[in-house]
Computed example of a mutant assay.
Amino acid sequence: MARIDALSPTTRRPLTRLTFAMAKRRFAGKVPEPMLVAARHPQIYRSYLGMEMGLDKASQVDDKLKELAAIKAAAMTGCEFCIDIGSWFGTQHGITEAQLLDLPRYAESPHFDELERLVLDLAVGMTRTPVDVSDALIEQLRVHLTDEQLIELTGSIAVEQYRARFNWALGIGSQEFTEGAVCARPETVPAAATVNGSRVPAPTAP
């Protein structure tokens, strides 16, 4: 249960009611709990919606890549809500059950291609504290992506950091989007290592 009471889904605020109705259509009849909590603060809620809508409209990077990176970041931060909804949403964009299960060992898994591994490297590096993203990794990504695509991908991972840490701090847990289906697992985060042109090692699953 969240540490702050959520706003009632039957609120009379016009914009909030509209966004709740839109969310129900998109998320299997559910209003995501982070929306219900954030909506208690109208200014923060509008900012949150703007960020999410902008990211949703950005379309230069394959949705599968962005979702894969978001799930990895969520798993590393341990956000139960994000892992749950991300796994559910990710499978709708082509992420396979094998990929969800192999996220902790993506560097060695045969279920990821070169670009997917590099995208996951970026998610790992951005989720570390301190952030650990090398020039070499960015140059490897540039072989596959334009600068605009790199901006979109990096922004997508950064927004996931916001989601995960907001939810984690306020005790927002799983909403059971993946009930009965395969879901990614939380991962432990080892201390950041220096990257010298090689891929960032995958964290060890608990």
Rank of each mutant, 00 (worst) to 15 (best):
R3I: 01
I4S: 01
I4P: 02
D5F: 07
D5S: 10
A6I: 05
S8W: 05
T10F: 09
T11V: 05
T11Y: 07
R12E: 15
L18D: 03
L18Q: 03
F20A: 08
F20E: 02
F27P: 00
K30Y: 00
K30G: 00
V31M: 01
P32G: 08
E33P: 09
E33C: 12
A39E: 04
R40V: 02
Q43F: 12
S47L: 06
M53I: 14
G54F: 01
D56C: 09
K57Q: 12
S59D: 12
D62Y: 05
D63K: 15
K64C: 01
L65C: 07
K66R: 15
K66T: 08
E67L: 12
L68Y: 03
K72S: 07
M76N: 00
T77N: 15
T77Y: 07
E80A: 14
F81V: 03
C82R: 00
I83S: 01
I83F: 06
D84M: 02
S87Y: 04
W88Y: 13
G90N: 05
T91P: 00
Q92D: 11
Y106K: 00
Y106N: 02
L115C: 08
R117K: 15
R117G: 06
L120H: 04
D121P: 04
A123T: 07
G125H: 14
R128K: 07
R128H: 10
T129Y: 05
P130R: 07
D135W: 04
L137T: 13
R142V: 03
T146N: 09
Q149Y: 11
L150M: 15
I151M: 13
L153N: 02
T154R: 06
G155W: 09
I157M: 05
I157Q: 02
E160D: 13
Y162K: 07
R163C: 14
F166K: 11
N167D: 13
W168C: 08
W168T: 14
A169R: 09
A169P: 08
I172H: 06
I172M: 09
G173Q: 08
S174H: 01
G180N: 10
V182C: 11
V182I: 13
C183S: 13
A184P: 06
P190E: 01
A193D: 10
A193C: 09
S198Y: 12
R199S: 15
R199N: 13
V200N: 14
T204N: 06
A205E: 02
A205G: 04
